[in-house]
Simulated scan of single mutants.
Amino acid sequence: MAVFTPVSPEAASALLHKLHLGELIELRGIAGGIENTNYFVTCTAGEYVLTLFERLTAEQLPFYLHLMKHLAHAGIPVPDPQADAHGEILHSVCGKPAALVNRLTGHSQLAPQPVHCAAVGGMLARMHLAGRGFDRQQPNLRSLAWWNETAPLVLPELDASEAALLQAELAYQNHVAESPAYAALPRGPVHADLFRDNVMFEGEQLTGFFDFYFAGVDTWLFDLAVCMNDWCVHLPTGAHDARRASALLQAYEAVRPLTAAERGLLPAMARAGALRFWISRLWDWHLPREAEVLTPHDPQHFERVLRQRVAHPLVPSAYASTCLSE
């Protein structure tokens, strides 16, 4: 959610008029994130978020926008893309593909307690099940193929220890991906970036998931692992928090129990989730793009998470037993 492309009030007003949403009251750029240009838009019809897509193409974008529509209509609290008179939800602003979605209420919970993690786990499972009826297909564009392509670009920037970890983990993940157990994992549309700053709460009430622009068809277990790697870790060290992990996992399984294959591969997918974000943060840190508002994330955080996941594998049953013993 950075600002790469400046949007004038006139350009925003033109889109609002096209969508019959009234007059522009305020347009404010959003700092944070690193992929797209984002603005808060206040108009006479309400509060919205305008996104201009800087990397995704007009051919790729319908998957994300129609997935959000599908989930919103299925009762999952996600932003609903606004359509014009012809039903089109992909627009153009300042020469870039763009979307306008309703702004969710609430705030991000950056210091989650087990109750917040349970809410996220239950809603994530509901989202996975709701996605089964979605008929569009697009792979997770930041999955193993992208890791294999991007790792050589960042390796020259790493010290010997970092390079050894990256190469070893990439080899391990390629090995896992070739296994029959991995092929047996349930799949469907996934968020793939469900961090604390992509979920809204009002108190302990979850009010929405947003920022679906890394979504794609992948294993549900990978999505769950990415989520746990952010919601259930001690940020300074990357170590997992057993109480939060137990709350999230139990709430998820109350809606959609994990299969035996998923239980067996949770440790590997937790490592995969950490590797994915370590590589992408290395890429953004060492090969940044120009933007008016841009703060790249420190890649060392997910290096720490990955080292923790290798040294201390995540085992589903351990969360429940640890939580009960406390």
Rank of each mutant, 00 (worst) to 15 (best):
residue 223 D to K: 01
residue 290 E to W: 13
residue 135 D to L: 12
residue 96 K to A: 08
residue 166 L to N: 12
residue 21 L to W: 10
residue 260 A to H: 05
residue 90 L to K: 12
residue 41 V to S: 00
residue 60 Q to P: 00
residue 1 M to D: 00
residue 167 Q to V: 14
residue 106 G to Y: 04
residue 258 L to C: 12
residue 234 H to D: 14
residue 75 G to A: 10
residue 59 E to W: 04
residue 237 T to I: 08
residue 252 Y to A: 03
residue 23 E to K: 14
residue 190 V to L: 02
residue 2 A to L: 02
residue 21 L to F: 13
residue 66 H to K: 13
residue 265 L to V: 08
residue 313 P to D: 10
residue 33 G to N: 04
residue 111 A to C: 06
residue 176 V to L: 14
residue 267 P to T: 10
residue 153 L to T: 08
residue 254 A to H: 10
residue 187 R to Y: 08
residue 245 A to Y: 03
residue 177 A to D: 03
residue 88 E to P: 02
residue 248 L to Q: 01
residue 67 L to M: 03
residue 72 A to H: 15
residue 50 L to M: 07
residue 19 L to V: 09
residue 279 I to S: 01
residue 251 A to R: 01
residue 220 W to Y: 15
residue 143 S to C: 05
residue 154 V to R: 01
residue 64 Y to A: 01
residue 248 L to F: 06
residue 82 Q to F: 02
residue 236 P to L: 05
residue 146 W to H: 07
residue 183 A to C: 08
residue 306 L to K: 03
residue 26 E to F: 09
residue 279 I to Q: 01
residue 50 L to Y: 02
residue 83 A to H: 05
residue 125 A to Y: 00
residue 201 F to Q: 07
residue 8 S to N: 09
residue 186 P to H: 15
residue 104 L to C: 11
residue 224 L to P: 00
residue 70 H to E: 08
residue 323 C to A: 15
residue 215 A to R: 00
residue 284 D to G: 03
residue 197 D to N: 15
residue 256 R to H: 11
residue 273 G to L: 03
residue 300 Q to F: 06
residue 315 V to F: 05
residue 171 A to M: 06
residue 94 C to F: 04
residue 159 D to F: 06
residue 58 A to K: 15
residue 14 A to Q: 12
